[in-house]
């Protein structure tokens, strides 16, 4: 199977001399759900800009489904749908017109464009708003409108640059469900996000970019296996004692009914439960304190700086 995206030694130096990308290379397989993470200014949006032709690269090679963008950008563009970080549609145009016009720019005949627009506006819950000028839509609706617009030519590769930024939790979950569905139907998805929970929940592979370089490129499972330590919150049935001690573990009392326990790699959480039971402390629920990927991300980014 040919890769959906291949980037080789890609670099970008802006006019003011800022080196946004320092020869990065990565590959995204067909059908993958791929996360691109990194702090602000790391080079994620520059990479996406180059892939979809909004940014001119300084050096390197980009191929989309083995079509080199330097040789046949028009063919490569047909494979790509892009949802940018900022709203980039005419605020005075109606939602339906925005989607239909985008289909037209890809050469889809008017009737087919109208069919597709209806399909994706319905799928994203915007059909009722089709005749509303886009400036009247809420932030979440505008994001979904950009997704509908990006999908109208049914690209094989969908690139989303922070699609859930500023979107409420319920809307975010429904967008996740939608993205999972189209990924299951065969669309390769590349996602940049600041919500590491989002990457962990959705994606199978990940690249972490920092200061224009890729500091990690692997599967999320492999990455998480390398975690040295996890922190769990334990909710107690009765009020917890002021101090709790378990040999080999760091335990903190957060409030009257919650404890925080650090479990190092190689240790077992069962040991904690056994010891707490012996001390008469009964637990009725448990959860991760912080997003696990977030911890790994901070380690990698801080380690690189």
């Amino acid at each position: 199977m040919i890769p959906a995206l291949t980037i080789e030694n890609l670099s970008k130096v802006y006019g003011d001399g800022f080196e946004a990308l320092k020869g990065i290379s990565l590959e995204v397989q067909q059908g993958d759900f791929f996360a691109m993470l990194g702090p602000n200014g790391a080079g994620k949006s520059t990479t996406i800009g180059i892939i979809c032709s909004l940014v001119a690269k300084t050096a390197g090679k980009v191929s989309v489904f083995e079509v080199d963008i330097d040789r046949d950008f028009a063919a490569a563009k047909k494979y790509i749908g892009v949802v940018p970080q900022e709203f980039n549609f005419n605020q005075f145009e109606k939602a339906l017109d925005i989607v239909i016009n985008q289909a037209g720019y890809y050469g889809l005949p008017r009737e087919l464009a109208a069919e597709r627009a209806e399909k994706y506006l319905k799928a994203l819950g915007l059909w009722d708003k089709r005749d509303v000028p886009s400036r009247m839509l809420s932030g979440g609706m505008k994001r979904r409108l950009m997704i509908a617009r990006a999908l109208v030519h049914e690209p094989k590769l969908l690139i989303l640059d922070e699609p859930t930024a500023g979107v409420d939790i319920e809307m975010r979950r429904s967008m996740w469900d939608f993205l999972r569905k189209i990924n299951a139907e065969g669309t390769t998805i590349i996602l940049t996000t600041h919500y590491l929970e989002e990457a962990e929940a959705l994606c199978r592979h990940i690249a972490i970019i920092n200061k224009g370089e890729i500091v990690e490129h692997s599967s999320i499972k492999a990455l998480l296996r390398r975690l040295k330590r996890e922190v769990f919150i334990l909710d107690c049935v009765e009020e917890a004692p002021e101090t709790v001690q378990i040999d080999g573990f760091v335990v903190r009392r957060i409030d009257s009914h919650s404890l925080e326990v650090e479990v190092e790699k190689g240790q077992f959480i069962n040991q904690v439960f056994d010891e707490l039971g012996r001390q008469g402390i009964h637990i009725n629920s448990m959860r991760n304190r912080a997003n696990r990927l977030e911890e790994m991300f901070v380690n990698l980014v801080e380690g690189a700086s």
Partner: peptide, 12 residues
Amino acid sequence: NNSVEELLVSPT
């Protein structure tokens, strides 16, 4: 308003 990007990312 950056809507020119709609055209620039397309194969037009």
